[in-house]
Design a protein around this nucleic acid. Structure first.
Length: 703
DNA sequence: TATTTAACTTAGGAAGCCCTCA
DNA sequence: TGAGGGCTTCCTAAGTTAAATA
């Protein structure tokens, strides 16, 4: 149809324009401008004896989703275009699935699964990995234009080379000695290896922590010979400094290597990447995310983790489960070893798994975020969040209604959901006490994490939340809530001790079951995705104008991104070099100021000369000096913005929300609409991860 | 129904690469 | 050219959720 035609023409023009832009952009210097949003200052919970007194200075306005009403604009018909509903070719009924399973078990898969040739297919590399030149982009597979399998299987063919193991332990040279109680002592290889793990961490704060030291020493002793065990009885008498120095020198030497040596290592790494870093999944060569087995070392739990310092043992082939197609060339175990198991389960996405012995959890090797299998899931996640958008007002109406329920469990569920929606809290599963750090989320909040203030700072019904969240990152927020929520919270707190659960009639399983009834696929975390994405979209609309220049537009983008990071409480520890780099920047600013005043003086003098001499030459000098003043002023302004910006971003991490919570199509549409090159927003890796969004999104996309 | 396990996503720290500037 | 520092990538811990099991 003509409409369709004009649509595709538009798309084509847009693509041409984009190509043009891209040519120029590669060389353009990326100008990074962030913005300053006030945020609640938060630190790691375990560092915060004093920080309880650090209060929010200002209401950021971002601790609740901003103006949802505005976002609830009429749905656009063409939205369907973006929906994650790939044409359903085969809707398998149960019988078919069973039959297929049977076929697979019988090896019946083989015939069907011989890789077929396709135009865009990236063929398996059989040449040992020599690839095209870096700059020559391969034709990328547009999996998002293909039909999705709907029978629950994740792949039909999977072949890979298995994991890469860390190199075996290399004993220390004899000159590097361990001292016990002032005396040099040669350790047995097993005990020595574990000692090196500790020695390498000597500069780290971990080694000052009692739990870490205690756990390490206990596990280390298990590796000692009986003779060593009887001699080495106290950690404080152990002196690892020689070993520590040795490793420092080694890493220094690595830095000092010649260009050629470094190049050689790089090439070797590239070879390993080409050999082990890719798999073939359903006719396509896909990048693996983490193909290396975790090396042995000491467990570094976050926060006050009761198991920090315990020994993470070396993983052997006998611990490894391989997952691949029956009809693929199976990965070979290293000579003289065998895998624990080789299985062919196409209902899961992992290639390799093993059980780690500290927490007893399973670790996996899976594909890279740019892969089809991850991308499809990501896309689907944002589609679920968009479905939530359509009914979120109804859900809000219902939980508000439920605040008045006769049943306590319903009230608790409704207040918890309100928190999850308004404050973007995580679900908050129960955790094993003593096995993990004491952290909480919404459903696991305790009395001690919340304080109620009928009045505070001129606001009514203020709830003060202060708890250690995921990764023991402190969540601190004061938020004014509705009266009914406040009254309910008072009720929930009645007759409870500090350590009691706030929501004693609720857990994540109950909450998610309820959510599932409200919308297919709805869980607590969907609210985080939804609120993050809708906040970005609204902020972008509010902050950007097409009249802005590119740096201004990028500034606005970063502002919007920061609003989301604040909402989601994405923090980082201030960089170690932060003070220093701020100091350096300040020095630069001071110098620039001096430069500016000197330039101004020169301009003044030149003007005076021009006045007396009244000739062309001195007039030209005035012009030059004027330009110099202007240039230096601009440079100074830039530096000052950079300084404020860096200060404000000290504790905020923008990456996590960008990578995991913000529908990339919002950003792509924004870039296209405002003529901002996508490279300003996403780096190469991010562009690879979001290739689907970059390819399919028009400027008029609405989340 | 409660608990455990498996699978997968989300997360911040650190290493190391690479760009900038003197 | 080399130091400094910012940015990217890697690493792996710590969450969520659904399915399996008791």
């Amino acid at each position: 149809c003509s409409e369709h035609k004009s649509c595709s023409e538009k798309k084509h023009r847009e693509k041409e324009k984009e190509k043009e832009r891209l040519k120029h952009k590669e060389k353009q210097k990326e100008e990074k401008v962030d913005l300053i949003v006030p945020y609640h200052r938060v630190t790691k919970y375990n560092e915060l004896n004093i920080s309880l007194s650090i209060k929010v200075e200002e209401d950021t306005g971002y601790h609740h989703p901003i103006k949802h009403e505005k976002a609830l604009k009429r749905e656009r018909d063409e939205d369907d275009r973006y929906e994650h509903k790939p044409k359903k070719v085969k809707v398998d009924n149960e019988k078919k699935v069973k039959k297929r399973k049977q076929e697979e078990d019988d090896g019946g898969f083989e015939e069907r699964e011989k890789p077929k040739k396709r135009t865009k297919e990236v063929k398996k590399d059989t040449t040992g990995g020599k690839k095209k030149a870096k700059n020559e982009p391969e034709e990328k597979w547009k999996w998002w234009e293909e039909e999705k399998c709907t029978d629950g299987s994740k792949w039909r063919f999977l072949e890979h080379k298995g994991p890469v193991f860390p190199p075996p332990y290399e004993p220390l040279p004899d000159r590097v000695r361990f001292h016990y109680d002032g005396k040099a002592m040669k350790l047995s290889p097993g005990a020595e290896e574990v000692a090196t793990f500790y020695a390498k961490m000597l500069d780290h704060e971990y080694t000052t922590k009692d739990i870490f030291r205690k756990n390490f020493f206990k596990d280390w002793r298990k590796e000692m010979t009986s003779e060593e065990k009887s001699k080495i009885t106290e950690l404080k008498k152990c002196d690892f400094t020689e070993m520590h120095e040795y490793f420092k020198a080694q890493s220094e030497a690595r830095k000092q290597m010649s260009k050629e040596e470094k190049q050689k290592i790089k090439e070797e790494n590239e070879r390993i990447l080409q050999e082990y870093g890719y798999c073939v999944m359903d006719n396509h060569r896909e990048r693996i995310g983490n193909f290396r087995i975790e090396p042995p070392g000491l467990f570094r739990g976050r926060g006050d983790h009761p198991k920090m310092g315990k020994l993470k043992r070396r993983i052997r082939p006998e611990d490894i489960i391989i997952n691949c197609s029956k009809d693929s060339v199976h990965p070979k175990a290293p000579p003289g070893t065998r895998w624990k198991e080789v299985r062919h389960d196409n209902k899961v996405t992992w290639l390799v798994s093993w059980t780690e012995k500290i927490q007893g959890s399973i670790k996996y090797i899976m594909l890279n975020p740019s892969s089809r299998i991850k991308g499809e899931k990501d896309w689907q996640k944002y589609e679920t969040a968009r479905r939530l958008k359509k009914i979120v007002e109804r859900i809000r109406a219902q939980y508000r209604e439920d605040w008045r329920s006769k049943e306590m469990r319903i009230r608790q569920r409704a207040v918890a959901l309100y928190f999850i929606d308004k404050l973007a809290l995580r679900a908050g599963n129960e955790k094993d006490e003593g096995e993990t750090a004491d952290t909480v989320g919404c459903c696991s909040l305790r009395v001690e994490h919340i304080r109620l203030h009928p009045q505070m700072d001129g606001q009514d019904y203020v709830v003060e939340l202060d708890f250690p969240g995921k990764d023991s990152i402190r969540y601190y927020n004061k938020v004014s809530v509705e009266k009914r929520v406040f009254k309910n919270l008072q009720l929930f707190l009645e007759n409870k001790q500090a350590k009691d659960d706030l929501f004693d009639r609720l857990n994540t399983s109950i909450l998610n079951k309820h959510l599932q009834e409200l919308m297919d696929g709805l869980t607590a975390k969907v609210f985080r995705t939804y609120n993050a994405s809708i906040t970005l979209q609204q902020q972008l609309k509010e902050l950007t104008s097409s009249d802005d220049n590119i740096p201004e537009k990028i500034l606005s983008y970063n502002r919007a991104n920061r609003a989301v990071a604040v909402l989601c409480n994405h923090q980082r520890a201030p960089p170690k070099t932060f003070e220093k780099s701020m100091h350096n920047l300040q020095t630069k600013i001071d110098e620039k100021k001096k430069q500016l005043s000197a330039a101004k003086k020169e301009l003044k003098a030149a003007k005076a000369d021009a006045k007396t001499l009244r000739d062309e030459k001195s007039k030209r000098v005035v012009e030059t000096k004027k330009k110099a003043v202007q240039r230096i002023s601009e440079q100074l302004m830039k530096l000052e913005v950079q300084a404020t910006d860096r200060e404000e971003n000290k504790q905020i991490a923008l990456g996590t929300s960008k990578l995991n919570y913000l529908d990339p199509r919002i950003s792509v549409a924004w870039c296209k609409k405002l003529g901002v090159p996508i490279e300003k927003i996403y780096n190469k890796t991010q562009r690879e991860k979001f290739a689907w969004a970059i390819d399919m999104t028009d400027e008029d996309f609405e989340f």
